[in-house]
Nucleic acid binder design. Structure first.
Length: 417
RNA sequence: GGGGGGGUGCCCGAGUGGCCAAAGGGAGCAGACUGUAAAUCUGUCGGCGCAGCCUACGGAGGUUCAAAUCCUCCCCCCCCCA
């Protein structure tokens, strides 16, 4: 977007605030509105109400979710009020988006549990003491039919079909349920309920966010402005980060795992991750880019630093350092990790004092089936005390196994005790 | 209500009587290589102590020496017309 609007007469503090809020944002609409809001908020000494709605459909947040949370944290930093809406109601109905399969309707207990972990995990980024936390079931649940109808009357079908994924699916003969049409309306109604000044979301939410404006106007309220942040690309470097694509890095991932996953992103994604996930400032990101470009900053080093920084954010500096040395040890020097998890020799794997290797792997959980274990062995992916074993018929004496380290692939180790 | 098109392995998708545990792609997994769990290449990719057997192509029956493929009924999904 064009961000060259004149800042003449804008106080320096607001310029700074504005610049930081724009950083990393994709759409900030309508043009110039956010700046006006910031100025007004300042002159009236009234913080902006910044809305984010989340559906508690997954128990764990991943780094993709944190992009928008970081943006919220910036608003918070400047004294604005973050209004976090847990979509317990919308989650309960079950959004069938994208698939013909109806998404299972989540039971209350699951939603409540998800909401709880969401709060805990969001607390790593936001100051939750200052967040206004709400549940949209509080106002959507009691809505009467006539009120629902009033809501539906505010938007036309043609308008709905402007939404890219709706029209695309519609043209492709894929189902679009009425329920899905309701989602943007309910989300917009949330904005009415909390009197939002601005709503944040991923770029995929642009339509819904704009719908909030329409609906607020229909309810006689000043329409919110909207700010979108980029969707984070997952570790595969292609699709957006999502649990269902298996390309996600969870904020609760163990330090070593998180470190490793970060190391698996394509180089081309590094700068993006730095700027969207670490809270690094513009200057820091620029010098990093420069270093990578002129060769003074080795990409492998940059990625390690990135991984370390992210682990530090969600765990601790110590854990981050440990994860890094673990990674270097195991992958760079192809050595064993210092700490190897231990597991007792499973009884069921022992027959007449002998242990058949594939069965050992499955019973230790290192392979899902004997067939898979066989393949791993044949492909040279299994080591017993550093020695590759390639014969799937291998049998070993149970007693001799105790204390040995079983390795599957490059990164799974287990010591039999 | 009428007409048409579909339901295949984790996902997408080919297959219309045997050569089909089912092409191809993606994901996953393993190996090689590398600064990396990047990229690339190779292999593998239902289960079973596996040169064999079992289970599988929406569900249930049936025809056949033989069915994902043909028939019957049922369930589910999509589109068009009304």
């Amino acid at each position: 977007m064009d961000r060259s609007e004149s800042l003449d007469g804008v106080p320096v503090e607001v310029r700074e605030e504005y610049a930081e809020l724009l950083m990393g944002s994709v759409d900030v609409l309508p043009e110039g509105e956010l700046l006006r809001q910031l100025l007004r908020a300042r002159s009236e000494n009234r913080p902006l109400r910044v809305k984010l709605g989340v559906d508690p459909t997954t128990p764990d947040l991943h780094l993709g979710h944190t992009v928008v949370l970081r943006k919220l944290a910036q608003f918070q930093k400047y004294g604005h009020t973050v209004v976090l809406i847990i979509g317990d109601y919308t989650g309960k109905v079950g959004d069938p988006s994208g698939r013909s399969k109806t998404r299972p309707q989540l039971p209350d207990e699951v939603l409540a549990a998800n909401a709880k972990t969401y709060r805990e995990q969001a607390a790593k980024i936001l100051d939750m003491d200052k967040v206004e936390l709400t549940y949209n079931g509080d106002w959507l649940g009691p809505l009467r039919m006539d009120e629902v109808l009033r809501l539906t009357a505010t938007v036309t079908v043609a308008r709905m079909l402007e939404r890219d994924d709706f029209s695309r699916r519609y043209l492709a003969n894929e189902p679009v349920s009425m329920l899905e049409f309701m989602y943007p309306l309910l989300q917009g109604y949330d904005s009415v309920a909390v009197r939002a000044d601005i709503e944040l979301g991923g770029t995929d939410q642009k339509f819904n966010l704009l719908m909030g404006r329409t609906i607020m106007e229909a309810y006689g309220l000043p329409p919110q402005s909207i700010l979108t942040v980029p969707l984070l690309v997952g570790t595969d470097g292609e699709q957006k980060m999502s649990k269902s694509y298996g390309n996600y890095i969870g904020v609760t991932d163990e330090p070593e795992d998180m470190f490793g996953k970060v190391m698996s992103i394509p180089d081309s994604l590094m700068v993006t991750y730095w700027s969207l996930l670490t809270g690094a400032g513009t200057r820091e990101v620029e010098s990093l880019e420069k270093g990578l470009a002129d060769g003074s900053y080795h990409p492998a080093e940059a990625k390690r630093d990135l991984a370390q920084r992210l682990v530090a954010l969600y765990h601790s500096d110590a854990a981050a350092v440990a994860a890094r040395s673990h990674f270097d040890r195991v992958f760079k020097e192809k050595d064993r990790p210092v700490e190897i998890p231990e597991a007792p020799l499973p009884e069921e794997a022992v027959q007449n004092g002998l242990v058949w290797l594939p069965r050992l792997l499955t019973s230790l959980g290192l392979a899902p089936s004997n067939g898979e274990a066989r393949r791993l062995i044949q492909q040279g992916g299994v080591r017993v005390d550093d020695a590759v074993v390639q014969d799937p018929a291998t049998e070993m004496e149970a007693d001799s196994l105790r204390g040995t380290v079983i390795q599957v692939g490059k990164r799974r180790f287990l010591r039999v005790v």
